[in-house]
């Protein structure tokens, strides 16, 4: 056997278990949703094939358009602040700071909490009538604290996004902390010796070297935005008037509350296509090395 062939076989052996698990637990659910998307089906009794009609209905569905708009807002508005705050926290907590483990844990705790408690607590903080901010506003006379952000269909999605940023920033921090461990300290020291101030060193050396971390976070952020479910479910129930509806919440509502598993399947297929499309788009923009691993 040639070396090349042996190497290829070895690589298959490394990949096989993962691909096996995937074939079963990832491919089948996708096939299931694709199949369902061509049916008028309540999930229990026999469905009838309806061709592409679920997709054409989807195209005209104003709630579906809301989900797309919300995803489009969600992606930049969570990823950028989360990455920025997360990066600064990671920088601060990577150095020899006293109590840094405690800080790290504190900022990370929101990511650990169940979306159920996050939803309930934030509802109580933001409620414009009896909430924490409303009470604080009355006591302090700071009118701007009292906010009906979740009650107004125009602003509700921004309220949810803010809560989401609070929840997941600690995770970005963690990610950047891991990324910072990959940077050769000699490079930074060399730059300092060359007269660069810490700000310049960070901007010119650290940030560019974290490229793969940024890109991974970007991809996870996009996908995380597309699959947001529980937080919305508990915080706003996708309201008011569907203003915070996202693809998974809408698919859930259709499949289980409205008993249209076929329509829900079509929504899920759109979700998968969007996610795969963005991932592929990112390889185009940022070079295939990021995804395929051939960048060296």
């Amino acid at each position: 056997m040639s070396i090349a062939a042996r190497d290829r076989l070895a690589s298959v052996a490394f990949l096989l278990p993962t691909l096996g698990l995937f074939g079963v637990f990832v491919v089948y659910p996708i096939v299931f949703n694709v199949q369902a998307s061509f049916l008028d089906w309540n999930g229990v009794t026999e469905g009838t094939t309806v061709g592409l009609s679920n997709y054409s209905t989807l195209w005209q569905d104003p709630i579906f358009r809301t989900t797309l708009r919300n995803s489009a807002l969600w992606i930049p508005l969570t990823i950028l602040p989360q990455a920025a705050i997360g990066f600064l926290l990671a920088l601060a907590l990577n150095g020899p700071l006293r109590g840094r483990s405690i800080y790290r844990a504190l900022f990370f705790i929101p990511a650990v909490l169940s979306p159920v408690v996050i939803g309930i607590v934030w509802q109580r903080i933001l409620d414009p009538s009896t909430g924490v901010l409303a009470q604080a506003s009355r006591e302090t006379g700071l009118g701007w604290l009292q906010t009906g952000v979740l009650a107004d269909p125009q602003t509700a999605i921004f309220g949810v996004i803010a809560v989401n940023i609070w929840t997941w920033t600690g995770f970005s921090m963690l990610f950047y902390l891991a990324g910072l461990q990959l940077i050769d300290k000699n490079l930074l020291e060399a730059a300092t010796i060359d007269g660069a101030n810490p700000w310049q060193a960070t901007w010119r050396i650290t940030l560019p070297l974290l490229r793969n971390t940024h890109l991974s976070l970007l991809m996870l952020g996009v996908i995380g935005a597309l699959k947001t479910f529980e937080l919305i479910y508990v915080l706003t129930q996708a309201g008011p008037n569907n203003a915070t509806q996202m693809l998974p919440t809408y698919a859930f509502e259709q499949a289980f509350r409205l008993q249209s598993v076929g329509y829900a399947g079509a929504i899920s297929v759109v979700l998968v296509v969007l996610a795969v499309g963005t991932s592929l788009g990112m390889t185009r923009v940022f070079g295939s090395g990021f995804l395929s691993g051939a960048d060296r």
């Binding site: 509802q123 109580r124 414009p128 009538s129 979740l150 009650a151 706003t236």
Partner: peptide, 22 residues
């Protein structure tokens, strides 16, 4: 209705406030 009624859920938040005499 109170301000922000459309963003308050019945359980647990609404029920809780009513039970607490608020």
């Amino acid at each position: 209705a109170q301000e922000g009624a459309i963003s308050l859920d019945a359980y647990p938040s609404g029920a809780n406030q009513f039970e607490a005499g608020e």
